[in-house]
Amino acid sequence: MKLRLQNETLLSQQAKIQEQNIDIHFKNQRLELLNERSKSNEEVLKKAYIKLKENDQRIKEQLHTIEVSNKTLSSSINAAQTIQNAILPQKDVLKTFIGDYLLIYKPKNIVSGDFYWFCQYQESTFLAVLDCTGHGVPGAFMTLIGSILLDKIINVQGVTSPAEVLAQLHQEVERVLRQKETGNINGIDIAILKISPQVDNTYVLTFSGAKRPLWYWDVQNLALSQIQGARRSIGGEQDESVAFVDHHIHLSLGSLVYLFSDGFADQNDFKRRKLGEERLYSFVAGIVGLPLTQQQALLEELLAIQMNNCEQRDDIIFLGFKLGL
C-alpha cells in the first residue's frame, strides 16, 4: 500500500515536471521568436538609419545647390538693378532741366517695371512716366526696351509730337517683340509730356497718354486739373481706331505738373481696399499749394498708412515738378 502511494506521488511529480518542461519549451520558443523579431527590427532600424543619413546628405547637397542658385540669381538681379539705374535720369540732370521736383519711386521687387524717362531735344524737354507689363525682371526688361525705343524715336528720328511718339512706340514694340508672330501681348502704359518754354516766361505743354493721365495745377487759377490719356496701351492687341491725341496747355511760371503710374492708387490696405485714383487726386488737390518737399513727405505718409501691414502690390512711381522754379 505504501509502495503504491509512493508510485502515485512519483507519477504526479513526473507529470508536473513534464508540464513545466512543456511550459519552458514554449517560453523558449517565444523568446526565440521575440529574439528573431528583435533582430529583424534592429535590421530595419539600421536600414532606416542609413536611409535617413543618405536623405540628410542629399538634402544638404540640394540646399547647397539652392544657395548657390540663389546667390547667382541675386547677383544677376543686382546687376539688372545697376543697369536699370543707369538708364534712369540722374537727379542733378532732372534738377537742371525741370527745376524743383518730387519723386516717389518704389519698385515692388529689386528691379521695376515702372520708370521715368527724360530727354532734351532742340528747344524742348521731353518727360515720360512708363508702366510696363509686369514687375521684377520681366518688367525691367520692358523698361530697357521702352527707354531705347523712346531715344530712337525722338533723338534719332526727330519725332516731336507726343501723340506721334506714342504711335511710333506702339509699332516699334510690336516689331521688336514680334507680337504679331508670337502672340506676345506685353505692353506699356505711358504719359509723355513735351515742355516748350516761351519768350514771356510761360510754357506750352503738349501731353499725350496711353491709359495714363496728366494732372496739372495752374498757378493763375489755383485749380488742379487733369487730362485723361487714350483708352489704349502701347503694344499687344489694341483698338487701332482709338488714336493718340496731343493736348496743348499754356501754363505760367510756378505751375505744377504730375505724372505717375497706377501703382500708388492701386495699393490696397489691410481690408484689401485700393486707395483709388479719385482719392489720390483729392489728396493732391488738398496739398498742391505746399512746397514740393512737404508734398512728397505727405504723399509718402499717405502711402505708408495705406500699406500698413500689407505687401506692396505693384511698382510705384509718382513724379511732380514745378515749371521754371
Results as ranks from 00 to 15, higher is better:
Ile66Ala: 05
Ile195Thr: 11
Asp262Pro: 01
Ile77Trp: 03
Asp239Val: 10
Gln296Pro: 09
Leu94Lys: 11
Ile185Arg: 09
Ser261Cys: 01
Asp131Ser: 07
Asn35Ile: 05
Gln14Gly: 06
Gln226Ser: 08
Ile22Glu: 13
Asp239Phe: 15
Gln90Tyr: 07
Asp92Trp: 07
Asn21Val: 10
Leu193Tyr: 10
Phe141Val: 06
Ile192Gln: 09
Gln226Asp: 04
Leu193Gly: 08
Ser282Thr: 15
Tyr203Gln: 04
Gln228Trp: 02
Ile17Tyr: 04
Gln81Val: 05
Phe283Gly: 06
Asp246Tyr: 04
Glu311Lys: 01
Arg175Trp: 00
Ile77His: 02
Ala79Gln: 11
Lys322Tyr: 07
Asp23Asn: 11
Ala210Gln: 05
Leu5Ser: 10
Lys194Gln: 14
Ala265Lys: 01
Lys274Ala: 10
Phe207Asp: 03
Leu5Lys: 12
Gly139Lys: 03
Arg279Cys: 05
Val68Arg: 12
Gly146Met: 05
Gln220Lys: 15
Phe264Met: 04
Lys108Asn: 00
Gln295Ala: 03
Tyr121Trp: 12
Ala128Gln: 10
Phe244Pro: 04
Asn41Phe: 11
Arg4Gly: 00
Thr143Cys: 06
Glu19Leu: 06
Glu19His: 09
Tyr105Thr: 14
Asn308Phe: 15
His64Lys: 15
Ser147Trp: 04
Leu150Lys: 09
Gln18Glu: 03
Leu214Glu: 00
Ile110Tyr: 00
Leu298Asp: 08
Glu278His: 04
Leu3Gln: 13
Lys108Trp: 00
Gln228Leu: 07
Gln312Thr: 00
Leu103Ser: 06
Asn55Ile: 15
Val159Tyr: 07
Thr160Pro: 06
Leu275Glu: 05
Thr125Gly: 10
Val159Arg: 05
Leu150Val: 15
Gly324Lys: 01
Ser255Asn: 08
Asn109Arg: 09
Ser233Asp: 02
Ile305Leu: 12
Leu319Ala: 08
Lys39Met: 02
Asn221Trp: 10
Tyr49Arg: 13
Lys152Met: 15
Lys271Asp: 13
Ser255Val: 13
Asp100Phe: 12
Ala243Asp: 04
Ile195Met: 12
Arg4Trp: 03
Gly229Thr: 02
Ile234Pro: 00
Gly320Pro: 08
Glu61His: 13
Ser241Gly: 01
Leu88Val: 04
Pro291His: 09
Lys271Val: 07
